[in-house]
C-alpha cells in the first residue's frame, strides 16, 4: 500500500516562505476515508484560518501534527494510505 503525507503546500505564497501557523483542527481521524479535495486540516495563521484539502483519495493512517502543533510551509500533517489505480 502506498502511503503519502499531506503537507502544508510550499506553493502557497511560494516565494514568501517565513510564515508559520498552528493546527487548530484535524477534520478526519485515523481509519476515515478521504477523497481528493476534502477539507482535511485547519491551520490558523495570523491573517486567517487556512483549510487544507486532501490531495489524495485514500484512508487516513496517522495524524502527524495534532491540534495545537505548529506548522510551516512543507510541514507534513497527516499520513494517508492512498488507493491504488484500477
Amino acid at each position: 500500500m502506498l502511503e503519502e503525507i499531506v503537507r502544508i503546500p510550499e506553493e502557497l505564497w511560494p516565494r514568501r516562505g517565513g510564515w508559520n501557523g498552528k493546527v487548530i483542527n484535524i477534520l478526519k481521524k485515523p481509519g476515515d476515508r478521504v477523497s481528493k479535495g476534502d477539507p482535511l486540516v485547519e491551520v490558523e495563521i495570523e491573517k486567517a484560518v487556512l483549510v487544507i484539502e486532501s490531495p489524495y483519495d485514500g484512508v487516513v493512517k496517522e495524524i502527524l501534527v495534532p491540534p495545537g502543533g505548529s506548522v510551516s510551509p512543507g510541514s507534513g500533517v497527516v499520513k494517508v494510505e492512498v488507493f491504488g489505480e484500477g
Partner: peptide, 22 residues
C-alpha cells in the same frame, strides 16, 4: 473570528507560479 480560506491549488495556479518564478 478570522476569515477561513480554502486552500485549493489547481493546475493554473501551479503554472502561473512557475512562470513568475522563472
Amino acid at each position: 473570528e478570522k476569515v477561513r480560506l480554502r486552500v485549493s491549488l489547481n493546475q493554473r495556479y501551479l503554472e502561473l507560479s512557475k512562470i513568475v518564478s522563472s
